[in-house]
């Protein structure tokens, strides 16, 4: 077997194969480096000024989080952490839900039926070019500072681009599929709900995953401007006290929530129901 062995690089070059263990180590390296850097800087600043607020220690952040999670608010007697999470997730869920339903139905109609496309495409294209954050003030004036304005911002912000994408996908569905269904005796409505709509469902879920990032931006932005509870509201409230000890863990918590919601949607796509979608080779 001698002479057949090649030297395979583990890091450099096109042909590198880092392998399982070393690969994991590589991924861990920059994260550990940054975390170490932070801890070092935080420690150094604390030595200079024990009252330092910019870079709190791990212990400080832990204490802050522990307080907000376990101790009810003095004034209202409520658990702020739980209420914040609930409020933000509710807004996010409603916004995404409305955006998904509207973009699914209107998008499919626009994609399948040229009449609907001609009717709605210019409007939707126009709306999709409006920056949702730029009209946040208009939304607040029109819908008030209650829940509806926040939900509307999310639904509008992600729903309109989703609608465009769904319409494009439905339009690009192979025409042969529609023709085949019609020759098998399908009505136009049957083509819609038996052939096209079911195929757009996993694509919609994929689209929601892509839109999750923007959806979180809109939640936090809306809560920052006008709210009495919510994860974004808490962060902006603590900004007044420069309370980094709470803000930083909250940011991490929001990131974890976003990651978890993405995983949940991915889990739906992995269901046997959508087997045809995930292992498609076409």
């Amino acid at each position: 077997m001698t002479g057949l062995k090649r030297n395979i690089p583990i890091f450099w070059g096109l042909h590198a194969r880092p392998g399982m263990v070393f690969g994991r180590f590589l991924g861990f390296l920059p994260v550990a480096l940054l975390a170490g850097l932070y801890l070092f800087a935080s420690h150094a600043r604390a030595e200079k000024n024990p009252e330092d607020k910019l870079m709190p220690s791990l212990h400080h952040m832990y204490e802050e989080m522990k307080t907000i999670i376990t101790v009810p608010d003095k004034r209202s007697g409520k658990n702020l952490f739980l209420d914040d999470t609930k409020a933000s997730l509710k807004r996010l869920g409603m916004g995404i839900g409305i955006a998904a339903v509207a973009s699914y139905f209107i998008g499919i109609l626009m994609g399948m039926f040229p009449g609907f496309r001609a009717l709605l495409a210019p409007l939707v294209t126009g709306l999709s070019n409006i920056n949702p954050l730029a009209i946040l003030v208009i939304i607040l004036v029109a819908l008030g500072v209650g829940e509806s304005s926040k939900v509307f911002l999310i639904a509008f912000g992600i729903g309109i681009p989703m609608m465009r994408t769904i319409a494009g996908m439905a339009e690009r569905m192979p025409n042969e599929l529609t023709v085949k269904a019609l020759t098998l005796g399908a009505t136009q409505f049957q083509v819609l709900y038996k052939i096209i709509a079911p195929q757009m469902l996993p694509r919609l879920i994929d689209l929601i995953r892509v839109s999750l990032g923007s959806a979180w931006i809109f939640v936090i932005a809306a809560e920052a401007v006008a709210a009495t509870e919510g994860l974004g509201y808490r962060i902006y409230l603590q900004q007044r006290y420069m309370n980094m000890g709470l803000i930083i863990p909250y940011v991490i918590y929001i990131s974890l929530l976003a990651y978890a919601s993405d995983l949940a949607l991915l889990g739906i796509l992995k269901l046997p129901w959508f087997r045809w979608y995930s292992n498609g080779d076409e």
Binding site: E176, L177, V179, K180, L182, T183, G185, P198, Q199, W276
Partner: peptide, 17 residues
């Protein structure tokens, strides 16, 4: 297209879902 005239394509004839 309707059910009086059938068609068999090379591709795409089947509903993938």
């Amino acid at each position: 297209p309707d059910r009086t005239r059938g068609v068999v394509f090379q591709n795409y004839g089947l509903a993938p879902h």
